[in-house]
Structures are given as structure tokens and as C-alpha cells.
């Protein structure tokens, strides 16, 4: 018959071992934060940055963030078919709409392509390792920059 106490003792020992190694990793982690952890945290960080930028443009997204994070692809897909086949060009769920709000600008006022590293689309897609197909074809900056609008 199994010796429960022995088992418990073994488990505790193994757990302690595992915990210790975990702590080692954790202790080591801040040291390499510049590389690995920096990136690990980057999703959260640049998210915050983007949200600020976004608010700067005055307004909020077409749906709440909770919804957009899960369903933006469906909205874009749906809109894409509507536009392509029916000529419906409402801007609410259009990719152009996304670009207009979420594209960042450089100091000189020019746009940074939205799929550049660290930019709105790319940062999360890169983090989640999901390819963005949109920008194989679509423009990565809004058509007209605010400065050059007639």
C-alpha cells in the first residue's frame, strides 16, 4: 500500500525544488529585461501609449475595446465584402477608418506606417504572432495627412 506521508513529503520537496527554480528565473528575469521582458511587457506598454494617442485624436473607437480586441477582424472582413461587392463605403468599420485614428505621426508630422514595428497593428499582431494580410495590398497610412489637407 502507498505511503501517503512519504508521498506528501516527496511532493513538498519537488514543489520546493520547482519553486526555487521558478524564483531563480524570476530573479534573473529583471536582469535581461532589456530584451526579453521588455518585449513581454511591450504589449501592455505600447497599448497604453496608443490609447493616449488615440484619445488625443478626440473620440473613442467604433466599439468598446473589449469587443474590438476580439472581433476587429470580423468587422473588417465584413466591411471588406460589403465595400468590394456592394460599393457600401461607410467608414464605421472600414480599414481606412482604423488607419485614420490609429496611425501615429513622426515629429515632422508625417505618418508612420501602421504596420511598422511597434505601431498599432503590428505590435499586437507581432506579439501574438499573427500575420496581417491587409497591408499586403492596402495602404499603411491615411490617404491625406492632416497637415496637407487642402
Amino acid at each position: 500500500m502507498l505511503n501517503i506521508r512519504l508521498w506528501v513529503a516527496r511532493l513538498v520537496m519537488m514543489g520546493a525544488l520547482l519553486g526555487a527554480s521558478g524564483l531563480t528565473i524570476a530573479a534573473e528575469a529583471p536582469c535581461k529585461s532589456a530584451v526579453d521582458r521588455g518585449n513581454a511587457a511591450s504589449a501592455g506598454d505600447c497599448q497604453a501609449a496608443k490609447e493616449k494617442r488615440f484619445e488625443g485624436r478626440g473620440g473613442k473607437c467604433v466599439e468598446d475595446e473589449h469587443f474590438m480586441r476580439r472581433n476587429h477582424m470580423n468587422l473588417i472582413l465584413h466591411q471588406r465584402d460589403e465595400t468590394m461587392h456592394k460599393g457600401i463605403r461607410t467608414s464605421k468599420y472600414s480599414l481606412k477608418g482604423c488607419l485614420e485614428c490609429h496611425t501615429a505621426t513622426r515629429a515632422d508630422g508625417s505618418y508612420i506606417p501602421i504596420n511598422d514595428p511597434g505601431q498599432f497593428c503590428e505590435s499586437c499582431h507581432h506579439f501574438a504572432s499573427v500575420k496581417i494580410d491587409c497591408f499586403e495590398c492596402h495602404a499603411t497610412t491615411p490617404a491625406v495627412s492632416p497637415a496637407s489637407k487642402p
Partner: peptide
Amino acid sequence: ETHNQKANAPRGKGT
């Protein structure tokens, strides 16, 4: 590969 597409004229490699 295409770059700097016009916003109104999406076009991409392979299509």
C-alpha cells in the same frame, strides 16, 4: 511586392 499604395487602390503581390 508593392509599397506606398494609394489608399483608394489597394494592390499587392501575387494577385
